[in-house]
């Protein structure tokens, strides 16, 4: 009997070590939840404050503006976007750090390095591509590009963390493609892709692994 409990303990150790050394498990569901809320806040600021209740990206709206007004509008939108990005990355790191402390896991491991590299390749590519779109005044494609490249980054990341991230990535890609077909509703797709999906994902993950 004694050796049998040893065998099952051995199996447990093997599974635990295999998982912990090949997957980044510090990713917290709370990161997703708060990233989603921040995305909503950013969209609300864009819609109510910057665009003053106008739907983004219609040709008519932009042609009605003077060059100066357009420049101010662009700057405000970019500032809003940058703030959302910084806050979202900040909370993700914060909650992951907290989870790693609580679970006694290391944040900086060979697998987290691999995760980062695999995420950064699509993300940086997407970032540069979006800057190009911006310079060329292809505004309509900016939100679809964000969703698409973010989705691709998550699909890549899914191999090195919870497999749910992979499926979240697939849905983000689908959202990005739909958004490219109906770019006039960019802000709504943004709210769905970065807001609702993140909140739903965050709550699911929190309940499943941290509840």
């Amino acid at each position: 009997m004694d050796s049998n409990t040893n065998y099952s303990e051995d199996l447990k150790v093997i599974k635990k070590v295999m998982e912990e050394s090949s997957r980044f498990l510090s990713l917290s569901g709370l990161s997703g939840l708060f990233a989603g809320l921040i995305a909503f806040a950013g969209a609300a600021v864009a819609y109510f404050v910057i665009l003053k209740n106008k739907i983004l990206l219609t040709e008519k709206y932009f042609t009605g503006l003077t060059i100066k007004e357009l420049r101010i509008l662009k700057t405000e939108l970019i500032a809003d976007l940058a703030l959302v990005l910084i806050l979202a990355i900040g909370v993700s790191l914060y909650f992951s750090y907290r989870k790693s402390l609580r679970k006694g896991l290391k944040m900086w491991t060979p697998v987290s390095k691999r995760l980062l590299i695999n995420m950064l390749i699509p993300l940086v590519t997407g970032g540069i591509f979006i800057i190009i779109l911006y310079i060329q005044n292809q505004w309509q494609l900016i939100i679809p590009a964000m969703l698409l490249f973010y989705g691709l980054a998550l699909v890549n990341a899914g191999k090195f963390t919870y497999s749910e991230v992979f499926y979240l990535g697939l849905i983000e890609i689908l959202t990005g493609l739909l958004c490219a077909i109906f770019p006039v509703y960019g802000l709504l797709f943004w709210c769905f892709g970065f807001g609702i999906l993140h909140i739903a994902y965050g709550l699911t993950m929190y309940r499943k692994y941290e509840g």
Binding site: V13, I14, V17, M18, E20, S21, S22, K106, T109, P110, V111
Partner: peptide, 19 residues
Amino acid sequence: MSVLIVNDSYDFNSLKATL
């Protein structure tokens, strides 16, 4: 062995931390 079966290679310090 559990670490090395799922990772192509793993350095000494990371092994130490993991185990």
